[in-house]
Design a protein around this nucleic acid. Structure first.
Lengths: 199, 199
DNA sequence: ATATTTATAGCACATTTGTGCTATTATGTC
DNA sequence: GACATAATAGCACAAATGTGCTATAAATAT
């Protein structure tokens, strides 16, 4: 991304602030008030430049037709932290996590609250939220959600001659081999929150 | 939430669809086209009812002043899955995960890509993204990010007479006691993606 | 069958909003 | 200092947009 002038970043910051607060973009005149620039033309001037620099996209003729390119709700991912420097030193930022886009493809996705400790050794604990992509088949070694005796279980999947083998990641439990286990989906990710509720 | 009529849910669905596609709410006339209702008054009629039912909030005088109460980008969380019934049977939905709001309080938050296997037994693996809330102190037993010899480490925190004790969750590694370890923040959650990149 | 409520349409109007143009002020550059 | 360029202001205007009102159709109750 090109670097931008002071005025341009002022406008950009006002847009992101507004979006954070309202969940929708501002109009030219709202930006005019926020930035202090008294002419809508000045705003458009900067908006056009911001668009050329790749920071926003403008929809002609639409009110509030400003689309931010950088996701507002992202969280910075730090690559490394070194002593002395403050944590928010920009140089260390490795990327930006956009939680909204983290598990896109959402129409074929659902989430499941994990019960029990059978997948403990795979780092999936009781209370974790598992993100599941709906599919009826799986490949060996993938972690799946399967329907077994009208109960949903999270296990590792293997296909054997005698049927589907569902392997827990915990020595306390035994693998299950079943001919009528039904695969519901594949676990594509998990999320865990250490304090407070997850939902 | 109150239950709503067929027309009302039609309008609501059109709004959510629009927001998913555009990232900002529609105008009355755009909704008119989407729903097929030919009068803007009809739209307002339903919008007012949707507001009373608590599904949206209307900002008077603002163009596109519709605020959705349920987060659009949420993923349904299934409480239980039972045999026979299709996965998306609505009755099973336990809640809705709103990833954007999952780790709010974002100005004091950052994320960190976990390196190494020292927290393996706590279910934190290499490659996981840890969400960290910036703070300079911690309580016994909490998982913290600490600065040790100009390197950031993720460990369990304990305070002892001889200094800060940082305990890994892996028998392969030994606890570290240090007088000049500096707490950067507390790990409030983790997220893991099983295939593909995380950022 | 009649009355009442609910749902939809149509239209006029004031306000909001993006657009286009010209003028003025700063900021450099030679 | 003269000149060119960038940045800001002001204003007029048409299109978009929310608001308010009345009329009509459909559904429901009496």
């Amino acid at each position: 991304m090109k670097n931008i002038s002071k005025s341009q970043s002022k406008v950009l910051n006002c847009i992101t602030d507004w979006v954070k607060a309202h969940d929708y973009p501002p109009t030219l005149r709202e930006l005019s008030k926020l930035t202090g620039f008294k002419s809508t033309w000045t705003i458009r001037y900067h908006l056009n430049n911001l668009q050329e620099a790749g920071y926003i996209k403008l929809k002609k003729g639409f009110s509030r037709g400003i689309i931010l390119m950088k996701n507002v709700f992202g969280i910075p991912v730090l690559g490394s932290i070194s002593a002395g420097k403050p944590v928010d030193a920009i140089e260390n930022i490795d990327g930006q996590i956009d939680l909204s886009n983290m598990f896109k493809d959402q129409k074929d996705m659902f989430a499941l609250k994990v019960k029990g400790d059978s997948m403990q050794d795979a780092g999936i604990f009781e209370g974790d939220i598992a993100f599941v992509k709906k599919q009826l088949t799986a490949q060996d070694g993938e972690i799946v959600v399967a329907l077994l005796d009208s109960e949903a279980v999270v296990k590792k999947y293997y296909l054997t001659k005698s049927g589907i083998k569902l392997v827990p990641a915990n020595q306390k439990y035994q693998p299950i081999i079943s001919k009528n286990a039904q695969i519901i989906g594949k676990v594509v990710g998990i999320i865990r929150k250490y304090s407070g509720r997850n939902i």
